[in-house]
Design a protein around this nucleic acid. Sequence first.
DNA 1: AGACCCAGGTTTTTT
DNA 2: ACCTGGGTCT
Length: 684
Amino acid sequence: MIETFLDDLNPAQREAVLHTEGPLLVLAGAGSGKTRVITRRIAHIVARKLAKPSHILAVTFTNKAAEEMRDRVGELVGAKTAQDIMLTTFHAFCVRVLRAHIHRIGYRKDFSICGEGDARTLVRRILGDLDGVRETFSPQRLQSAISLHKNGCDRPPPFPVDDKIPADTEAKYRAWLPEFIGRYQSALRAANSLDFDDLLALTLELWRKEPDLLAKFQQHYRYVLVDEYQDTNRIQYDLLRAIAEPRRNLCVVGDDDQSIYGWRGAEPAHILAFDRDYPDARVITLDQNYRSTETILSAANAVIANNAERRAKNLWSTLGAGRPIEWIVAGDEEHEARAIMQWLTHIQKKTDAACGDFAVLYRSNLQSRPIEMALRQAGIPYVVVGGQEFFERAEVKDILAYLKLAANPRNETAFLRVVNVPRRGIGDAALHRIHDLCGNGSLSIWDASLQAVRRGLVEKNAAAGLESFHRIIETFRKRFRQPDAPLRAIAEDLLDAIAYRAEIGRTSRTPQQFEQRWGNAEAVLRAIEIHEQSAKAPSLAGFLDENALDGDDDRQSREKRREDAVTLMTIHSAKGLEFPFVFIAGCEEGLIPHDRSLRENGIEEERRLFYVALTRAKRHVTVFEALARNRFGRICMTKTSRFLGEIPSELVRRRVLAAREMVESAMTPMKTKPRRKRRPRPLA
DNA sequence: AGACCCAGGTTTTTT
DNA sequence: ACCTGGGTCT
């Protein structure tokens, strides 16, 4: 039994599995069987009875990764045993800890989790109260500054590089930022909400302030494993160190060359410094690749060798040389798209490959348009991965806001979103009055609104509206709290109580739109039902936690990927995946490396991104380049990405479908295409 | 409340 | 070129 976990491992993998005691760093190159090592290692610990399954903590970054890992571990040790392992994301783990213990540091246990969108709304609102700064700093920029700050990022938050901003503004900005963060925090606090970063930061704070509690966790988790270690940020790193401290059975697995989330606060430095922090750490490098041809690996190795900040490693495989990398030069992006379509068709004819064997990768989502058009015209099925629409839809947000209020009436964002949906005659005047009552934030907007009614501070109409709103929330708060409450049924009642179907009807312009939007509402109900059926202890709070942490991953996208269709996605979303045939579109300076990223994060992260793209391929890579590209409505000549030049030329076959001079000369006269006038919107 | 217009910006996006 | 957000007008 035990031997079977080791049989099909190479010596390095085997050592990584067997080295269970003490700190271990596994440098796992792309395609080197990283997941296999982690799952076997867990199975080994369980089978050898080194610890109970529940004493193992395995952390991933995404829910998807956690699920997959649980499945794979389940295949080895049985699904039932796999259930007991604490195998989750950082954030989900912290939510668990906080839901149980956060009262010890003065927070309420029924806090809401404030997603990225809600947080942005909050930033906007605070910014709205402040005069004179709104013009200079975008909410997005501030949000990312806040996040980097909260994650204990060492470097200063990026300051907008912009000629229009006078030189002394940066100093002012830096001086002012802490105050802004303070306001943001107290707004969150008043709303009894935590953002994603708080989940991590407060867990750490909790552990620091309550050493006895930390000790219990340390006692409990005997083995700690981390996947995608190159993506950890400062706080995550501190959390890991804290919990693994006494036993030091900390195993981290990652690849510094695939660190592509620096802009998110990930610090690849951690992987480079691991054996400085743990001098006795065993370091194992997995460099045998089981995925790609030797040609692909040589190209990838050559490219990444240009990075200085890395641990040197060279991937190798025994899968044969394979075919040279194809480099196709097209005229503009539409030409490129057609070339992609034709080349794909050509390969299919030669190899019998299915559509699902192809991925078209690009740096930026806007590149997908022309490619989609070309594929559609040719009748080639495709799926575009990415985009986060579902949870952005108004209906979905509305319903979730009601549910969030039922779980935590203090949730200010949710309150403001639906207090007047459907219309209850609560206008700006009433809301201002209420807002004034909140004062410095000591009173939540919910309580303030109660008081406003009680003290007759708002006009009759608004007061009546507020009272009915209060009643609905209170009613459903109670109902949801009943033990074994039928969540879906209650949620349906809630929609009835606010006549939401009619509301959608009223605000839809066409029957199709109505169907679509009501369909979204039903999708939320279905999601609740799924939670009800699959969760160990279903609850409203549990459902909301799951959804807050599960971003936009409605299961559809996952299932869609299975279908036989060409996959279109950004390189970022391709991390961790593999395809027989990979096309990389838009290999031009400015796109990859992206010029803005170049400015803010430096060249090396962009190079890693290109490296990730190359190493997704099993059999063959084709890189595409357009000589001219539409940029912000202007046609511009492009320059070949420097990364293409870094691939040894003997590995590449270049085909030029468009001559530079032709493209250049075609550019000047054709600036005015007959422009279609925009018609007035056709009514239903 | 809803329609309309203009200005600004425009990379990636695990949770 | 295109979308978003905010402001204004009806």
